[in-house]
Amino acid sequence: MHDRLDTLLDRTVLLGYSRPGLLLRRASWGPLAPDALQGRTALITGANSGIGKAMAAGMAALGAEVTLVVRDTERGVAAAAEITAHTPGATVRVARCDISDLADVRRFAHEMLDHTDRVDILVHNAGVLPRTRTESPQGHEICLATHVLGPILATDLLAPALQRSGAGRVILVSSGGMYSQPLPVRDIEYRTGDYHGATAYARTKRIQVALTPVLAERYAAQHISVHSMHPGWVDTPGIEAALPRFRRLTRPLLRTPAEGADTALWLAATEVPSGKFWHDRHPRPEHYLRRTRVSEADRERVWRYCTAAAGITPS
C-alpha cells in the first residue's frame, strides 16, 4: 500500500482502526512463515480471551511454546485446551499472575526464572476498564497498576531470561484511545476530578507509549527490544462489557480478535527498530494533537514516578 493512503487511513480513525482499513492494508502484506516462531518461548498476559487468546493461538500456530499468564487459571486452562485442539502438538501452558498486584508479579517472575531458561517474547496484554476508581493491593489506581506498573516490574524481573534469548522482545498492547489524552504528569494516579474509566484507560495507555522509548533504551545493551502497538477496534468480551454502546454502533466495522492480534504476531516474528509505536505493521506517531505533546522532562518525571511505585531503579 502507498504510504500516503496508509497515512490517510490512519488519520481518519474510522477507516484506519476498523476492519475495512485492515483489509485494504493487508492486501500488500506477505504472510508470516509457518515456522516463524519455531523454538521460541512466549509469555502473554491476559490471554484467556479476546486479543490475548488470539495472540497465543497465533504464536502457537507459528511454532512458539506459549504460556498464558492469567488471573483465573480455570479459564486459562480452558483457553489452552481450545488452542491445542486447533493446533495439535502445540505446547501451551498456564501460569497464574495478577499483573496489577506487584507482590504477585514478583512471585510469578521468580517462579518463572526458577523454571525457565529463557523468554523470547513477553507480551503485556492484560487490561482493565473500570466503572469506578479502584486501587490495587499496593494502593495504585487500577489502570495504572495493570497497564504500567505491573508490566514494567515484570519486564525488569524477567530481563535476565529475555537477555538469554539473545533477541528478547517485549510488546506492550496499547490503544488508539491514548491519542485523546496527554501524559498525566501532575495526576498520574488520577486522584483529582471526576473519575471516568475510559479516561483512566486512555491515560495509562498514553503512559505505555510514552515509556516505550525509555524502556527500549534501558534494555538495549541486553539485546532486548521493546515495542508498543495498538490493535485497532476489535470485537472482544472486554469491549462488550465495558463499552456496550460503542460496540452496538460499530459492530459491523469491528475486527476479529485474530485480526487485532496480527501486528503483535508480526512484531514477535520480524526484526524491526526498538522503541516505536505500531499499528497494522507500520510505525505510527505518538501524537496527533498539539495539546498531548510533552517534554522529555515530563516523560522522565513520569518514568521516575512509575519506577519508584513499582520498586525498581530508574536507570
Rank of each mutant, 00 (worst) to 15 (best):
D298S: 14
G52W: 02
Y288V: 12
A61Q: 10
E189K: 09
T134G: 00
G16P: 00
R291C: 14
Q138R: 15
M1D: 04
G168Q: 10
S295L: 04
H279M: 14
A145D: 08
M55D: 10
E271A: 15
A27Y: 06
V185C: 07
D35N: 11
D72S: 14
C143A: 11
A221E: 14
Y201L: 01
M112N: 12
T41W: 08
V13N: 06
P137M: 12
L9E: 02
P252Q: 10
K205T: 01
V92T: 05
D114E: 13
P160Y: 14
L23I: 08
A126F: 02
M178H: 15
T155P: 00
L267D: 03
A56P: 00
R40N: 01
D104C: 02
G30R: 15
S315F: 14
R248N: 12
A81Y: 04
L62T: 07
I83E: 02
S18H: 10
Y190I: 12
V234P: 00
S100G: 07
V92S: 01
Q222P: 03
Q222R: 15
T91A: 14
D187S: 00
G63K: 10
T91S: 15
L22F: 11
A216E: 04
S100T: 07
D120W: 03
H147D: 01
L149F: 02
S295P: 01
D262Q: 14
I312S: 03
R251N: 11
H140C: 06
R247I: 01
G21P: 04
L68R: 05
S18D: 01
A90L: 03
E286A: 15
L153T: 05
S18T: 02
T204M: 08
E135W: 04
R4A: 15
A258V: 08
V209T: 06
V185T: 09
G63F: 07
K205G: 03
I224G: 00
R290N: 13
T67E: 09
L5N: 04
R40P: 03
L149W: 05
V94D: 05
V105L: 03
A95M: 10
S225F: 05
V128H: 00
G50E: 07
Q208Y: 04
L43Q: 01
N125P: 00
R118D: 01
T292K: 11
R93T: 14
L144F: 11
L8E: 09
R304K: 13
A95K: 12
G193Q: 09
